[in-house]
Design a protein around this nucleic acid. Structure first.
Lengths: 214, 214
DNA sequence: TAGCATTTGTGACAAATAGCACAAACTTTT
DNA sequence: AAAAGTTTGTGCTATTTGTCACAAATGCTA
């Protein structure tokens, strides 16, 4: 990590988009790409791309563009995609299984080491190459394998209980897919992936668009 | 819809949070709630809550607070949660199944009417009470049931093909869960739910936090 | 080499968003 | 009825984010 300053939120959320296009460009054999090309397909203005990337250092070359491999490597470094991050998924329902088998995670350094569930019929099963354990074993596995992240894929009603167990077990990052608000100590990093909330905003746009059809 | 003005994006994304707390308050029998109470658990300052809600009209009463039922009703109206929105899910893998059975959607007016897949072994199955059809039947079902929304739950490689078929079939809103960029006509509303990108930003915070532990 | 076309990085400006503070409206207490 | 305590809505200010424009750097062409 070269720069010590924080990356602004909006910029941060655009970096993965750039990263994806860089990978694509590299796959196509391109060794250099311009800010215009990087952003245009996603509707991001070239100036925005340049300002975003300027947070990571002076990566481009005037009159030429950005070295695809170099910038991709910097992004991997800044985003920490090369750091091995161990995670457990709690909840072996459809969502838990989908997440356990999600192909994108491994490529971004996230290693799901195990699943947990309360349902005895699920315990012992193998999902996407990972075993399903009983909740009692959570603390043991977390400590033994130094798991940092817990993914919550249980119904809303059980989410807080699960999170309490995760925190108790020593997990410090929680990625919550249950549509509910969770309480965690301030030392724990909580990220919510709230599909219901997302749907609500989409619904707003749908309704609004229909109203404007006149 | 009373107000004709657009709701700012940041405000819009907080409305579902307020809605959830309102529902909770109603369940607890509270008929009135203050801006402080509405926001505090989620770390949103009271002034922010008030300004957000002021976009929807003058809903509160000075010295008293907000009528929980009234504001909840306004939010349902503004967000269009009461409008029946028909959707199909393409991809009957774990993610598609998880989405088809997601309990939150129905309560927000989204009705998933069917799933679609290419895999012959999946066609004809019933998932969360909905049938899995062959892709050939997509256009027919979309037209017959007036489906507006298509949910993309297939691997990245197949996503563009699926989206093209959706657009061809007459779908006007696409909620994409595949980790890839998609091209759609400007008349189609595309919303991306990119878990890989989301993971990348979480990864940044994890890495950063570790670096600051010194 | 000179001239022209690209393209970056950034300073200056514009727009959007957040935070503050207080008058006005209402409730409760004395 | 008056005083004290809440709480809203909003004008004003501060901060953050986005856009523009251009000097400086580079490559290409003749």
């Amino acid at each position: 990590m070269v720069k010590g300053t924080d990356i602004p939120g909006p910029t941060l959320s655009r970096l993965p988009i750039y990263y994806r296009w860089l990978i694509r460009a590299i796959d196509e054999g391109k060794s250099v790409i311009s800010s215009r090309q990087l952003g245009s397909s996603s509707g991001i203005p070239a100036a925005q791309v340049r300002k975003d990337l300027s947070h990571l250092g002076e990566l481009g070359q005037a009159g030429v563009g950005y070295d695809t491999r170099k910038v991709a490597a910097v992004l991997r470094d800044v985003l920490g995609l090369e750091d091995e991050k161990q995670a457990v998924v709690v909840g072996a329902g459809n969502l838990g299984r989908a997440l356990a088998g999600y192909p994108g995670f491994e490529r971004y350094g996230l290693r799901i080491v195990a699943l947990f569930d309360n349902d005895p019929s699920k315990i012992g099963r193998i999902i996407a190459g990972k075993s399903v354990f009983c909740m009692d074993e959570l603390a043991g596995v977390v400590k033994r394998l130094r798991v940092e992240m817990g993914v919550v894929a249980v119904p809303a009603e059980q989410a807080q209980t699960v999170v309490d167990q995760m925190v108790e077990a020593g997990i410090t990052v929680i990625w919550n897919f249950a549509p509910t608000h969770l309480y965690v100590p301030s030392s724990v990093l909580l990220e919510n992936e709230d599909l219901a909330a997302r749907l609500a905003t989409i619904s707003y746009h749908m309704t609004r668009r229909k109203a404007q059809e006149f």
